[in-house]
Simulated assay, not measured.
Amino acid sequence: MQNKTFYNEILTEHNLHPEHKHALDDANLVLEGVNPSCGDDIWLKLKVENDIVVDGAFEGDGCAISQASADIMLDLVIGKTKDEALKLADLFLKMIKGTVTDEELEELEEASVLQDISHMPARVKCAVLGWHTMQEMLDEKD
């Protein structure tokens, strides 16, 4: 497992300087994700063409973990097919549940820094908000 300093640096960077937190006027999939237990609220916006996530963004407010996790997720899924994005979401959720293999963890790249969230039950919903929202959005597209 990577050290906590590395974890904190990545979360801080994605929270303070999120690359994907902006409007996306040409998004063709938009869905709100809300975590009522803490008030995190994001609007996930994806532009999907020919089953490929060609662009993505989010807007909204929430804690550092929810904002960083959504930004990291978009880094990972932009350029992937819908099925690849859904597989990554499944792997992320397996990681949070503690059932991911080392090989699967590697596929999550930078998102793997959130692995220890599984030991912080109050923060799990924060970390998975963007991922659940994307799953719901892409599953509805079928």
Rank of each mutant, 00 (worst) to 15 (best):
S37H: 11
G39H: 05
D40S: 07
D40H: 06
D40Y: 06
D40N: 07
D40A: 05
D40P: 06
D40C: 05
D40E: 09
D40T: 04
D41C: 04
D41Y: 09
D41R: 13
I42R: 00
I42D: 00
W43L: 11
L44W: 07
L44Y: 04
L44N: 01
L44F: 06
K45E: 04
K45Y: 02
K45V: 08
L46T: 00
L46R: 01
L46Q: 01
K47T: 10
K47V: 06
K47H: 04
K47N: 08
V48W: 01
V48F: 01
E49D: 10
E49T: 04
E49L: 05
E49Q: 09
N50E: 09
N50L: 02
D51S: 14
I52D: 05
I52P: 02
I52S: 03
I52M: 03
I52N: 02
I52G: 03
V53R: 02
V54G: 08
V54W: 00
V54M: 05
V54S: 09
D55S: 07
D55E: 13
D55K: 05
G56A: 05
G56T: 04
G56K: 01
A57L: 08
F58S: 00
F58M: 06
E59N: 10
E59Q: 15
E59W: 12
E59D: 09
G60R: 13
G60N: 12
D61W: 14
D61N: 13
D61H: 14
G62P: 09
G62K: 11
G62A: 14
G62T: 09
C63K: 15
C63G: 12
A64H: 10
A64D: 10
A64R: 13
A64F: 08
S66C: 15
S66E: 10
S66R: 12
Q67L: 15
Q67K: 15
Q67I: 14
A68C: 11
A68T: 08
A68H: 13
A68R: 13
